[in-house]
Design a protein around this nucleic acid. Structure first.
Lengths: 385, 385
DNA sequence: CTGTTAGCGCCTTCAC
DNA sequence: GTGAAGGCGCTAACAG
């Protein structure tokens, strides 16, 4: 699912080096002029209006400590009349803790990350936590900067789809709980919620091998990427289990740039001796395969069998439907949030959760050589046509 | 694009009524025990280590005010060694202003909202603003609660895909700039960035009328919804321009519940005298139409012409491709963010921006009666088949 | 150039 | 049951 372009080393500097205004002190440009700050009601205002002291007003409002029913009544009324909204900054300052968690994701435009965010969001909202979201474009420096920002807000925890170990290290050093999602860079050091990349990829590959395919191209973004690594491993396992050598040019890295991906995929499919089956390692690559094979007039599954890691809505809407393993993206976010909450409640040994990705066989895969003979299973909604 | 289930009245209470712990004072359950808060470095620590006073340290770090180069050097070094990250809460408290904006959206799982968020995010990040995100599930009470939360954080502004006028009123009363996105509830009262629903819907309808269709069903979630209203209006305009009566049962409300939508759509298409063309008012409804027509064995465009408001990736991947108008969702978020920034910089008369939705003709629409004769234009990537 | 002073808004002992 | 006092961490005068 990565959509990022770098994975730079875990520089993890606490503050940016050298003399530049430095990240430590975000070079506050100029105190942003508050247009006409209409003096918001403060606790003192409420207290005064209710004819009590600030401390009593505070107790009345928070419901902690003793307050005479009558006084409480007046306080609540006063607050309502004034449109009083307590200042979270002041509260957090006092409490040395903010009821918020940082959520650092690589790319909200990618369905996968958006769903992870949605899953985390719903759990955290239910528990009364606010989310500070940063779409860090999958860039390492951006992600570290984002981490620093949420650290500055004194968030209670951090969720991240990491791009390097830098974020986790930085956050850990500040004693703030963190859960890595989807990718893992500090195994054993901090919590993580991942999918079972190996098994999913193995099943997909076995499926193709079982259909007689031998020229199976696995297309990943970058071979060094952690999710890719797992998928490549599964791919290898399947070959090994079948007692066969992994083809030399079996794994291809197509990069992260959309245009480049299209080009590479087009090139691959146009070779003199093209693969008979393609395995796209994620939804972005899968889309490129689908478009390019169409452009080249390749019929699926007749001319080319096609499987993908990470089920996307379109894969069940096109015809034939695409055979995939589905990543439980929403659940991934939700589980990560729950794990974070429990870690915030009490420290403990880091735990890694791995979620299953069910195989979904559709019509995009067929036995090699036998033309126009889709395999068992559903075909995508339009197969009727 | 709405995905929500309510639009309740603009209750907009400042605080929740009655005696309940009340929203004003979020019934702080119990001061969340900070596990083992490892005393984070504070400005005083940095100052001490650098052998200067706190104010000097502050100046050195922020780069405001005079500081001897040598001292500055020591301060920066000390900060780095201590892993000092300034406390945003304290800063905000002092500054009476937080460099963050609240982003309240209805449903991150819906591609449309996720892209709006992505667009806004990128602009705001570039300007140094953090995003406090709330996925409010399109519920009015949730949205108001979310607004209160971000207000409490003293955000500098708010972006919202509103579900009622409540949020805007609440936020406005606190003198915080707000921009409504996609839907508009306080026309003339606050800024908004919308799409041109009327024109897009008119073009789509005209396209169908031009192909000879007369039984054209427009499927919306709820007729009372503001985006639906615009689309319905455009639909009406097209009929009027053609000098024809709008069919009595032309507009159907299918609700927000996914299952219910499927049912209603299935029922519609199974009628004895079904429409010859369907106009889905958004991507969610469109998906239901696509699936149901497949289930019923209807051929598109032979048996049924099909258009949709809001282009989704799958619409250009299926065959035939779906004729749509594309909402510039990312741009919507970006423009809203820019408008908010300018409003934060200086107040002014509320402005409403309306973005165009280009018509994209693909293969899902054909002349009535003439079978298997797709219209001009592209056909979706798989048409080659 | 640097330190002292004061206070942002809130909460929380601790007396009364 | 209630108020007075102090301080969370930081910054902005204002002296020196």
């Amino acid at each position: 699912m990565p959509q990022s372009r770098q994975r730079a080393d875990a520089a993890a500097l606490e503050v940016a080096p050298s003399a530049v205004p430095s990240a430590t002190a975000p070079a506050v440009p100029t105190p942003p002029v508050i247009p006409d700050a209409p003096a918001r009601a403060t606790l003192a205002d409420v207290a005064q209006r209710a004819g009590v002291s600030r401390s009593t007003a505070s107790r009345g409002l928070t419901g902690r400590g003793y307050v005479a029913p009558a006084a409480r009544e007046r306080i609540l009324l006063a607050a309502e009349e004034l449109g009083y909204v307590p200042d979270g900054n002041a509260r957090s300052l006092k409490a040395r803790h903010t009821p918020a968690v940082g959520l650092l994701v690589s790319d909200l435009r990618n369905r996968f990350y958006a769903e992870v965010a949605a899953g985390a969001s719903s759990v955290l909202r239910d528990e009364g936590y606010t989310i500070v979201l940063v779409d860090d474009t999958g860039s390492d420096p951006e992600e570290v900067a984002a981490a620093r920002t949420v650290l500055a807000m004194r968030v209670a925890g951090v969720l991240v789809t990491p791009v390097s170990a830098a974020v986790s290290q930085l956050v850990a050093r500040h004693g703030v709980p963190l859960v890595e999602i989807d990718r893992q860079f500090c195994r054993g050091e901090c919590d993580a919620v991942l999918v079972d990349n190996v098994t999913g990829a193995r099943e997909l590959t076995e499926h193709l091998l079982g259909l007689g395919h031998r020229r199976i191209a696995l297309l990943v973004n970058e071979t060094g990427w952690t999710t890719s690594a797992g998928r490549i491993k599964g791919y290898h396992q399947a070959w090994a289990a079948a007692g066969r050598e992994v083809p030399a040019d079996g794994v291809e890295a197509v990069g992260f740039d959309p245009d480049q991906i299209e080009d590479k995929v087009g090139e691959l499919l146009s070779r003199r001796r093209p693969p008979t089956a393609v395995f796209a390692a994620n939804n972005v690559v899968a889309e490129a395969v689908w478009r390019q094979s169409a452009r080249l007039g390749l019929r699926i599954p007749d001319d080319l069998s096609f499987v993908a890691f990470d089920d996307s809505p379109w894969m069940s809407m096109v015809s034939p439907g695409i055979t995939t393993v589905a990543q439980p993206s929403v659940e991934l976010g939700a589980r990560a949030a729950r794990l974070l909450l429990s870690r915030m409640a009490k420290p403990g040994r880091p735990r890694t959760t791995r979620l299953d990705c069910p195989l979904i066989v559709r019509g995009s895969t067929a036995r090699l050589g036998r033309r126009r003979t889709p395999v068992k299973g559903s075909e995508g909604v339009r197969s009727a046509r």
